Computed example of a mutant assay.
Amino acid sequence: MNPSVITYGALALAIICETIATTSLKQSEQFTRLVPSLITVFGYACAFYLLSVTLKAMPVGIAYAIWSGAGIILLSIIGIVIYKQRLDLSACIGLGFIVLGILIINIMSKTGAH
């Protein structure tokens, strides 16, 4: 299998695990609810392990930029859909810049795991 497929696959799974963990963190109510607390701990452990797999082939700054940026976008969407949170125009513009930054890194940069 192509190393970049493995690298980006591990990164995608890390992002998903981190998103699940952060969503569960809110539901854990400061670690007072057992199941969401366990999901949070397990999700973050999986996310960091998968991020470490990614770092074998991708620079830490690039991997972290993609990981955190995509996580911010996913968690913003979850906040809107699940928690009925509202984003103002400035927040939406800022999120758009994050998406643009991720696209620039992946399409134009030679630094990633291409």
Rank of each mutant, 00 (worst) to 15 (best):
Q30L: 04
W67M: 06
G79F: 06
S28Q: 02
V5D: 00
I20P: 09
G9T: 07
A65W: 02
S4R: 11
A63C: 01
S24G: 10
I104Q: 09
S4M: 12
A65N: 03
S76P: 03
V41M: 12
T32A: 12
I62D: 05
I78E: 11
T32V: 06
P3A: 12
F31A: 13
T40P: 06
V60D: 00
V60S: 09
D88G: 14
T22H: 02
A47Y: 14
T23S: 01
V5W: 13
T32C: 03
G101D: 00
I77A: 15
L75F: 03
I82K: 15
T54W: 13
S52I: 02
V81N: 03
L103G: 09
F31T: 10
G9K: 07
N2A: 10
D88P: 08
R33H: 15
M1D: 09
A47I: 14
I15Y: 01
I6S: 05
V99R: 04
Q30Y: 08
E18C: 01
I72Q: 07
V60F: 00
A21T: 00
I62H: 06
G61N: 13
V5S: 02
S28A: 04
Q85M: 11
L11M: 06
G69S: 07
G112F: 11
I73W: 07
Q27Y: 10
I6C: 00
F42C: 14
G69I: 06
I6R: 06
A91K: 13
S109R: 12
E29Q: 13
C46D: 08
S28E: 02
A12E: 04
Y44P: 06
L11F: 03
R86G: 06
V53S: 06
G79R: 09
M108R: 12
I39H: 04
I107S: 12
I105A: 11
L38F: 14
S4H: 11
K84R: 14
A14G: 04
L38N: 08
I102D: 13
Q30T: 08
Y49F: 15
A63N: 00
S4T: 11
E18H: 05
P59G: 04
Q27N: 00
G96P: 04
G71P: 00
Y64W: 08
S68W: 00
T111M: 11
A57H: 12
F31L: 10
V5R: 11
S28V: 04
S52T: 10
